[in-house]
Simulated scan of single mutants.
Amino acid sequence: MDKKGPEKKARLLAALEKGMVMIHLDARRPGVLVPPSLRNESHLRLNLSYRFDPPDLTVGEWGVRCTLSFSGSRFKVAVPWSALFAITSHLTKEFWMYPDDMPAELIQQTMVTSKVPEGVTEQPAPAVEPRPRAVLREVVLPEDESPEPVAAVPAPASTPAPVPVPVPAPVPAPAPVPAPSPVEAEGPRDEPPPGPRRGHLRLVK
C-alpha cells in the first residue's frame, strides 16, 4: 500500500466536495485499469466528479474507481494511490503534486525545462543605445538678414487669366472760345413787345 495514500485520499475528497477534479496518473503502473489505447500513457489525466453519470465514483483505501466516458464509450477505470502523482481542482485552481510517484521520464523533462544545461552560460542581451531624440529650436534671424522672398505660386490652370482693360487715349483740350463782341456781350436791347393783333372784317358780296 502507498504510504501517501491517506494524504492523497484526503486531498481528493476535499477537492471533490468543491467540484470537478483532475487526477494525474501513470497508466503503466500495476493495478491501473483504463482503455487499452491509454495503457502506455506515462501522464494520463482523468476528470472526476460526483455529478457524472452514472454516479458510481468511489474513493477508498485502495484508490479510485469510477465509470468514465472515452470517445462516447463508457469504461470502468481503477487507479491505485501508487499510480496517482498529482491532483488539480478545477474550481479553486489548487494543485498538489507528489514527486516521489512521478514517472522518471517526466521528472527528467521537468528538470531539463527548468534548469540551464551545464557548460552553457546565459549571454546578456546586447545593450541598445537609445536614439537621440529630435529637438525643435527657434532660430532668430539678425536684423540685417531677412528670409528669402517666396516665389509667387501660379494660379491653377483651371482659373482663367484676368483680361487686361484698355487704357483710354488722352482727350485733347478744347479750343479756346473767342471773347464775345461788345454788342453781343451787351445782348439784345429791350424792345416793347408787339401789341395784340386786331381782327379784320372782310365784306363778302
Rank of each mutant, 00 (worst) to 15 (best):
F95H: 13
R74P: 06
Y98P: 00
P103H: 05
F70P: 00
V64R: 00
Y98D: 12
D100P: 11
F85G: 02
W96F: 09
L84I: 14
R65Y: 05
I87G: 01
L91F: 05
F70N: 01
F95N: 07
Y98E: 13
L91A: 11
I87D: 01
H90A: 15
P99C: 09
C66W: 06
T58C: 02
W81V: 07
S89D: 14
M102S: 12
T58Q: 10
F85D: 00
W81E: 02
T88R: 09
V77L: 08
W96D: 10
V77P: 03
F75I: 06
G60W: 03
L84H: 02
A83T: 07
R65N: 13
F70C: 01
F85N: 01
W81Y: 15
D100A: 14
D101W: 06
P80T: 11
S69V: 11
P54D: 03
F75P: 04
R74A: 11
S89V: 01
S73E: 13
L57A: 03
V59E: 05
F95Y: 15
S82V: 13
L84C: 14
P55T: 13
W81H: 09
I87Y: 00
P54N: 03
M102I: 15
A83E: 05
Y98L: 05
G63Q: 09
Y98M: 01
